[in-house]
Each structure stands twice: as structure tokens, then as C-alpha cells.
Design a protein around this nucleic acid. Structure first.
Lengths: 333, 333
DNA sequence: CTGAAAGCGCTAACAG
DNA sequence: CTGTTAGCGCTTTCAG
């Protein structure tokens, strides 16, 4: 049995002919090693835990795809847990990961406190992607290691500058979930408006309740009633719903009102009008996050936190005939 | 140690005060049992494997959400593997599941042969959801147990009848991946046209290459050139892309051409025009699939195969002013 | 009711 | 190079 183990693990010290016999026997018997037993002795399970807030969201689907790909390439299997943005569900999922002794875990959009999670998971590494605990607003308080972020503020700034260049003057922000990225995006918009155009530019905030029936219609009505001519949406899902609601009110986008989303989900370029948005490299972030856990496992310590660049993708929902200046940097046609 | 085990597993034969002491100690020590060790002795891992073809697809995201929810409710953790519609990747993912000794596995949209999978996974139960092995076309060859299907043919039939009632006469089918559901949907359309309108009605098939750049534009061009007035799409993703491509050609939907999709992904109702489609209860199917594996585990044998009803959701992409008859059953406004 | 002992399937240290 | 032995963390007899 020890020889079989060594042969299968490609230890050099097995005779070639012995190894051949082992391989043959394994094949005819259809033997597949039991990882639970292996893990008991090597103290590693070759599994990674991945906690997502909502499997239904296209952005997370892409993230999962990238993550799973990278993990599988290194022979790791991935557990997924759906946290549904609720602290109790997230904790429960993490506990399951611990019971399974996942070698490392990655949390995307988690609402939990990072220190709490690290303590719970210790000594396994925890990687945070776009952490959403409200205390993280502004992203200054992300831990120094093991955190991955899209640079939301830069994206929003680019979006605001673009909209200003397009001649927009009355800015709305639709969001209000109160999560870190919601707060951060809104703040970034406020700062960008101040910087660009003095204190006169106000940003009016509208609360969106995703999923609530009729809420998009109300949102569109309020924005229209207030005479806004640009709306920055928390994410593409919201932006696309808003597009539909504005259409229902016969408000023309982008002529009467420009709409910008966030994420660049696959559907963004297919909507009508196509959606201007801040693109996050979701698949790439998934791959990168998996790579970070694996690195932590290999090195025995967490890699430094990183902030990934985003890019403004200008499309039909904001592209009116240009009044003064051309659109700013980083845009694809 | 034995007593602790018994206390934690709620064996009746432990003294209440002893149990209390155990619980207290467990809490202060932060002890969490090791499932790998448990599974070694109880020969069950409390894990389920889930193989999906593409984590990026909204329909699969919804399925995963339902599946994970049901599994978590029964204290099972789920492994996901991304098969990318390639037999070799699927086999690799299944092998990982076997190594982890997942108690049961579910395959959605798998291109593998069901018997091969069952053999590979034996004795663990395998549940097939919308199996896509080409030999499954028509769905007559699904195994008698452990298969779950949406009733694609019924959905397509309803769609065709609806389009005929709307006055459409020149039908196109866009698809051609060659998978079971692709073939089945196309065949169902052909039969529905024959039955409804004699042999004169032809269904013209167009090959769509999802993801290939420019392919949607070519598809739209071909359909337009042939003067089609209705197109049944393999799925919503394709339908929504086609909508964008038709728009780019300034073809008006639904006036010049009606478009119908399949799945009812969340964006179907948000597209412009909103998309008429055959709705699959994706989340529910995920829950149901998980319930089927769990039942198989409980009963020791596979539950009977089932076919779930679908419903035609009529929306803007097919709703021209009605020429003769009102739209058929099962529609939402 | 509780402790001691065996053993789940495997890897690693140790002889030979 | 290969077999023997111990032991990973747990559950389940088996005694007491």
C-alpha cells in the first residue's frame, strides 16, 4: 500500500516496472484515491471555499468562472456558498468551509468584518474581494494584505468627467444599499463633481430597492420629476432596469437623460441603448483572487492587497452629440 | 473523546450535565469538527458535486443559487465544477468529485453519456438536468431515473402557435450548437409548423456561433436577406444579441420580424423590446435537482425522471397588433 | 452513562 | 527500492 501511494504521488524512488504494475492495477480496478483520507494525514484538502453574495448576478457568475478555472488548473476543487448579503448566512457558509477544512477561502462582496473572518478562519488564509462591510467605505480600511479591489473611485470619476463633457448638469446617483461600494461610489461622484465644477454641482441621491416590484418605475418617476439629466447607477443591473423604466415613461436616453452603470456585465453592450459603464474585469478578478489564495498557501503568508484598474466604456446611453469637449481617456468606442 | 462525539451528535445517552460541559468547552475552545475525519468513518462527506457548463450564463447562475440553497438547508456543502461543454473538462471535474467522495452529483447540460457518468460515479447517485449529449435529442433516451428536464418541446410548440396567431409566416430558427436541446427545439418547431399549417410552412435554420465576433451581425443579415418574419432562438442570450444586431440593421422588432427566446433570464424582460420567451423555472429546477440527489441518498435509489412544465411569456418582441386570433394560454401581460 | 480500543484510507518515517 | 508501522481526527463497538 505504501508503494502504491508513492507510485501515484510520483515519488522518484519507485522502480519503473513496479510503477507500471501499479498504474495498470489502478486502471483495471478503477481505483481513485480518497482525498478525505489523504487530507487527514497531509493536513490539506486541496479545496478552496468561495463565498459569493448572489449566484444570480452576472458579475459574480463571471467571477466564479475565473476562480474555478484557476483553481482547477492547480488541481483544487472549489466549494461555493451563497451568502445572500446577510451576515448570518455568510457566517454559516464559512463554518461549513471550516468543517470541510478548505485550505483557503475567498469572499467576494462580503458584509462581514475582515478581522472577524480572519479570526474565524485562522489559520487558513482569507482573501477579500470588493469587501462590502459598511465600515469599509472609502476602502481606506481594507487590511494591508489579502484584499483585492476594483478601483471604483477612479471609475466613477472618469464617468462623471465624461458626463460633464457631454454637457450634463443635473446629476443623480441611484443606489443606497449602504454597502461599502455603494457609499464609495457615491462619495467619489460627489468629489468628482466638486473638483470639476465648484460647489454648485449637487448630486442628488435616489434610493433603489433592487427586486422590489414597481420600484424601478418609482425611481424613474422621481428622477424625471426632478429634471435630472444624468444618472449614475450603483451597478449595471440597476442601470438596465432603469433604462427600461425610463423608456416606459418615454424619456429618451441619452438625449434627455444619460445613464451610466457599473460592472460591464455581458448584457450591458446589448441593451438598447447600449449601456455606458465602468468595466470591472470580473473573470480576471476571479482568476486573480484564486491565484492570491494559492500564493498565500504556497508562501505561508498573505500577498499584499491590490487595487485593479477599471475602465470607462462609453456606449449609447451617454453618447449624445458632443457639445464642447471630446470624451476623456480609457474609453473604447 | 467518545463522549464529546456523542454529545455533539446529539446521542440521547449522554447525561445532560455532561453534555452541557462539552458544549461549553467546545465554545470556549472554538472547536469545529473535522469532516474529513468524520467522513472516513461514516463513509459520507456531506458534500454534493454540481457540474455546470458555463458559470457565466445567467440561467445557470440561477440554477446554482437554487441548488446551493436546498443543499445548505440540509447541511450539505456544494462543490462546483465548470465543464465548459467539453467532454474532457467534464470528466476531469467528475474525477475531482470522486476524489473528494461527493455523496452525490448533479450535472446540468452535460455533454457526456449518462451511462458513462453513472459508471464513473458509481455507487454515488448522479442526477442529470437538461442533459445535452447529442444522442439525447428528442429526450426519448433519457434514463428512466434521476433525470430532470424542462419540457422544451411544449414550450416551442406554444411559441410557434403564438407566432402563427400573430400572423408570422416565414419562420427562422437560430441555433445549431448540435446539442440535444438545440436539436429538440428545432425539431419541435418543425413539427409544430407542420401540424398547424400543412407542409408548406418551412423552417429555415441559421447557425449561430455564440461569442464569435461579428457573428450576430451576419446572422441578422442572413435572416433579413431571406425575408424571415419570425425567429425562434435557441436561448435568450442569443435572442438578446440578435435583437441588438437587428436593431443595428434598422429592422423593427416586432413589426418586421418577431423574436422569441428560451429560458427567461432576468434580462429578458428588460431588453428593448422586451423579449418573448419560453420560461424555465431555473431556480426551482436547481432546488428540485438538489432535492432529487438528497432523496436518492435517503432512499438508496434514484427517484423517477421528471419533466417540468415551461410557460410561454409573451412580451414586446412578438406582440404586434393582433391580426386574427388572440394570443394563446399561459401568457403574462 | 462513560472510557478504552479498533479502524476508516491514506502518507511518512523507519527499517531492511 | 519496498514492506512495516504509526497515526491523522473522528465514530462506533465493547466493556465496565
Amino acid at each position: 500500500v505504501a508503494t502504491v501511494s508513492r507510485a501515484l504521488l510520483n515519488y522518484p524512488q519507485v522502480n519503473a516496472s513496479t510503477r507500471a504494475r501499479v498504474v495498470r492495477a489502478v486502471r483495471t480496478l478503477g481505483y481513485i484515491p480518497n482525498r478525505a483520507a489523504q487530507s487527514l494525514v497531509v493536513r490539506a484538502t486541496q479545496t478552496l471555499g468561495l463565498l459569493i453574495p448572489d449566484a444570480t448576478d452576472p458579475m459574480h457568475g463571471q467571477f466564479v468562472a475565473g476562480f474555478e478555472e484557476e483553481a482547477a488548473a492547480h488541481d483544487y476543487t472549489v466549494f461555493v456558498g451563497n451568502g445572500r448579503k446577510r451576515a448570518d448566512r455568510e457566517r454559516r457558509a464559512l463554518e461549513l468551509f471550516v468543517m470541510q477544512r478548505a485550505d483557503g477561502v475567498t469572499l467576494i462582496g462580503s458584509v462581514l468584518r475582515q478581522r472577524e473572518v480572519r479570526a474565524l478562519l485562522r489559520p487558513s488564509p482569507a482573501i477579500f474581494v470588493n469587501g462590502e462591510h459598511p465600515g469599509l467605505a472609502g476602502y481606506r480600511t481594507d487590511l494591508a494584505t489579502g484584499c483585492l479591489r476594483a478601483d471604483d473611485a477612479a471609475g466613477v470619476t472618469a464617468a462623471v468627467e465624461h458626463l460633464l463633457a457631454m454637457g450634463c448638469r443635473r446629476f443623480a446617483y441611484a443606489g443606497g444599499l449602504g454597502t461599502a461600494s455603494d457609499i464609495t461610489r457615491r462619495q467619489a461622484a460627489i468629489h468628482a463633481l466638486r473638483r470639476a465644477a465648484g460647489r454648485l454641482r449637487r448630486l442628488r441621491t435616489y434610493a433603489a430597492m433592487p427586486g422590489a416590484p414597481g420600484s424601478d418605475a418609482e425611481l424613474a418617476a422621481a428622477i424625471a420629476a426632478d429634471g435630472m439629466d444624468a444618472v449614475l447607477c450603483y451597478d449595471d443591473k440597476l442601470a438596465v432596469s432603469l433604462l427600461a423604466a425610463l423608456r416606459a415613461r418615454r424619456l429618451s436616453v441619452p438625449d434627455q437623460i444619460a445613464v451610466v452603470g457599473f460592472d460591464d456585465i455581458p448584457f450591458a453592450k446589448l441593451s438598447n441603448p447600449s449601456l455606458t459603464t465602468v468595466a470591472q474585469p470580473s473573470v480576471e478578478m476571479g482568476r486573480r483572487a484564486a491565484a492570491m489564495v494559492l500564493e498565500a498557501l504556497r508562501m505561508g503568508r498573505l500577498p499584499a492587497s491590490a487595487r485593479l484598474p477599471v475602465s470607462l466604456v462609453i456606449r449609447g446611453s451617454s453618447a449624445r452629440s458632443i457639445p464642447h469637449a471630446p470624451a476623456p481617456s480609457r474609453a473604447r468606442p
